[in-house]
Design a protein around this nucleic acid. Structure first.
Lengths: 194, 194
DNA sequence: GAGTATTGTGAGCATGCACTTACTTTAATA
DNA sequence: TATTAAAGTAAGTGCATGCTCACAATACTC
């Protein structure tokens, strides 16, 4: 009998490096040669772990999102008080934005939505993300409502427009729901402006 | 004397086709061969109009944004009443989201932010966009504040996270301002949730 | 230690694609 | 009508890059 395969172990070992590379360079600019070099193996080996470059990228998307979700859980675990959970996450996100190259990966993936698998991976990811956010928005946060500056509200609207377009691109909501969502959120942002 | 150059005219004539192509396919997937075919000229000719593919893309970004801004002006011109200007634009955006392939261009551009010119074009565009939005958010929209559903608020937050990452990526705000903006908008979205 | 499948090496193939070059044809001016 | 640069044609070049193949070395089981 021959030696036992360690493909799974190696996949697990190299995945963080693959994630890091895609986060830095995005999809297109990441070459298989670059990946191999950083992983300190030949390209050949990578193709024994994943069928093609796209599979490497999809694996990276899943892993990066997973890491983010785990980070969130960890934060919430430290803070068992039911209140201020959202506030805690918001503070964390505000602080660490763009740290994991998460969105660089997302942007480059969004540039490839003509590919079905890529599209599906994105849809899965956004659905999970949105669900995660939803679960944390507990009701009863009435408190004293702060007013927004015009500039802040404008950024909020630009963000809203962006996510709306992503929703269109990925068919995350039907047109009717999407429009209603857009109107509601925009309304809150605008009317909350001092 | 030879015949006068009509380069400017031809540039202007072909630009819409170039825009359309980039909107459909994004940056990378748009090949110069494809552009030439759609423009019904040889690749050669395109390279007499623009120095390289990137220049064609940058021209497209500018033009697409310009078209959007003009559309907005046109909408506001039809509606000289100072009130409900924002509402009108919001309604328009909600209705026509994703129609011009605007964001497909933006996403693929965001995948190329390692390139300085590309980056600068995006920064210019976002600055203008945000300014435009800001100008329209008139104060005094107190009215009766609608409450958001949890789902809508969550989408708002995802959009906020997205734009925040874009802001980081493009250095549109300093960290301090960005965090403050994030917190304020998130606060309004969360506390506005029924 | 023999046998076998795994792991590693290195070269290379095929293709897509941005960009070029050498040339012909056209038409506006003087 | 002669001149001259622009407009058009056709072919090609060179490079990056995803992916493969033939083969050598290794180490695990029996």
């Amino acid at each position: 009998m021959p030696r036992p395969s360690q493909i799974d172990e190696q996949r697990k070992k190299l995945l963080p490096i693959v994630c890091q590379t895609f986060s830095e360079l995005g999809y297109r600019r990441t070459t298989t040669a670059e990946l191999a070099q950083r992983c300190e193996v030949r390209e050949n080996i990578l193709y024994r772990l994943w069928p093609d470059k796209k599979a490497m990228f999809l694996a990276a998307i899943d892993d990066i999102f997973q890491a983010r979700a785990e980070k969130w859980e960890q934060i919430l675990a430290d803070l068992p008080s039911p209140e201020s959970r959202v506030e805690r996450l918001i503070a964390y996100e505000a602080e660490h934005q763009g740290e994991f190259g998460f969105y660089r990966v997302i942007f480059t993936a969004l540039a490839e939505t003509d590919d079905d698998e890529m599209r599906e991976a994105l849809v899965r990811m956004y659905r999970q993300f949105h669900k995660l956010v939803s679960q944390q928005i507990t009701t009863g946060h009435e408190e004293d409502r702060d007013h927004l500056t015009v500039s802040d509200a404008a950024w909020g609207l630009v963000g809203l427009a962006t996510i709306s377009n992503i929703i269109v691109e990925l068919n995350l909501l039907g047109p009717r729901q999407r429009k209603q969502m857009f109107a509601s959120v925009a309304q809150v942002l605008v009317s909350g402006t001092a």
